[in-house]
Design a protein around this nucleic acid. Structure first.
Length: 386
DNA sequence: TCTGGGGTCCTAGGACCC
DNA sequence: TCTGGGGTCCTAGGACCC
């Protein structure tokens, strides 16, 4: 059965959402001027999280350093992000999308797919998509793009056409006209590295990719990826709209220093902080982890990482931190400047570890009490913020 | 201009087992 | 004495997404 899928994408999400809040507070609409959402504007290392359309027209891009954006436009308006508010805006637009179909997959905080096959029977999909987009705008005050297609890939590609506040279709029979002329980089899953590899081989457009024979493509990008790229470049994608929310497979946290650090005390403090955050998150979600990983990033952005398997899954901060400290000692000489440090856990389970040892670590009770106090303190801090 | 933070998936090589 | 092939797990590294 041929399907009808919508992809709904909030235009410059974080910027639009911040603007909605500011307008409600009687402040000027930052969507109308060059503006960006960023981290701490005083931090030389903060980057652009979202840019307004006037800012984008000046060449300011997401993920660009704020210092660079300021050079492009000295009068650029900088605003801080507000995660709690973003979550509320996200819930608002998702719940409006749900009115149209229960077959909804949230793809990120500001994007979702809905399967509209049933709802569109005897109805014009574009009219319905337009109605959905207008409903979001009038009820919530921000705009979205809706991409309409016969699968998720085409719907997502379509929502990326002209912005903002637009509905676009990309049916299979429109692929040669609407999708093939685009550069390979515009195809989902083709990032910087893959683009470099493809263009070096003379593959510039999605059409070039669609018509490339599999043998060459496999040599360029590997078997599995080649298959996917070939299907997608031809507009084919049979992946379903996944309505189940998948459980997390890993948790991680990282810190970038305002300048590169060389003092082991500074590195250890950061490692301690990220260990507390990650361990708190897995306890909150009732997970235990069997693998601990950590990494350091150097001046030149090269990364050294290390991971280790635990004999038993754990959610104890001290155990996770001590593994990370041990691994840090194995990859760092204690002198080379470090730009960033990160810690992650994976191989997650909800099962409680069976205590095999007859001689329980006497420190363990202390560690657990420490974690209990930490979690309580976090909970109090969150309550205070509400 | 000098590059955040949080995820998922894939690949390749080595260890180990049958 | 020297050899094979397949499967699985682990680790390091790298690509992509928002």
């Amino acid at each position: 059965m041929s399907r009808i899928i919508f992809h709904i994408d909030v235009n410059s999400a974080f910027l639009s959402w911040t603007a909605v809040k500011m307008v409600m507070e009687g402040k000027p609409d930052i969507r109308l001027v060059p503006s960006v959402v960023s981290g701490d504007p005083n931090d030389r290392r903060s980057i652009v999280t979202a840019a307004s359309i006037p800012a984008k027209k000046l060449g300011i891009k997401t993920a660009q350093p704020v210092s660079m954006a300021l050079r492009t436009c000295p009068s650029l308006v900088l605003v801080r992000g507000d995660w709690e508010w973003y979550k509320r805006c996200s819930e608002g637009f998702i719940s409006i999308c749900r009115r149209y179909s229960p077959l909804l997959q949230q793809f990120s905080i500001d994007e979702c797919f809905i399967d509209m096959t049933l709802r569109c029977q005897g109805q014009d999909p574009v009219a319905l998509a337009t109605q959905l987009k207008d409903e979001i705008k009038s009820e919530l005050g921000f705009t979205v793009n809706v991409g309409v297609g016969s699968n998720k890939l085409l719907a997502k590609m379509a929502s990326d056409f002209e912005k903002p506040d637009k509905v676009h279709t990309l049916w299979e029979n429109e692929v040669p006209q609407k999708m093939w002329p685009l550069g390979v980089r515009d195809l989902l899953w083709v990032g910087k590295k893959t683009e470099e590899r493809l263009t070096a081989y003379g593959i510039h457009t999605i059409e070039d990719l669609a018509k490339l024979e599999m043998g060459s493509l496999t040599r360029l990008v590997g078997h599995k990826f080649a298959q996917q790229l070939h299907e997608n470049a031809n507009g084919r994608d049979d992946s379903p709209v996944e309505t189940e929310v998948a459980e997390a497979k890993s948790y991680s946290a990282e810190r970038t220093f305002s300048r590169d650090y060389t003092d082991p005390k500074d590195i250890d403090r950061a490692l301690f902080n990220v260990a507390c955050i990650v361990a708190h998150r897995i306890r909150r979600d009732d997970f235990r982890a069997s693998t601990v990983s950590m990494f350091i990033k150097h001046k030149d952005f090269s990364v050294q990482q290390k991971q280790t398997s635990l004999s038993q899954p754990t959610d104890v901060t001290a155990i996770i931190l001590n593994e990370a400290r041990r691994m840090l000692g194995e990859i760092w000489d204690g002198q080379t400047p470090i730009r960033q440090v990160g810690l992650g856990v994976s191989k997650l389970t909800h099962e409680n570890a069976v205590q095999m040892s007859l001689f329980e670590d006497p420190k363990l009770e202390y560690y657990r009490e420490w974690d209990r106090q930490y979690d309580e303190q976090r909970a109090r801090a969150e309550d205070a913020r509400q």
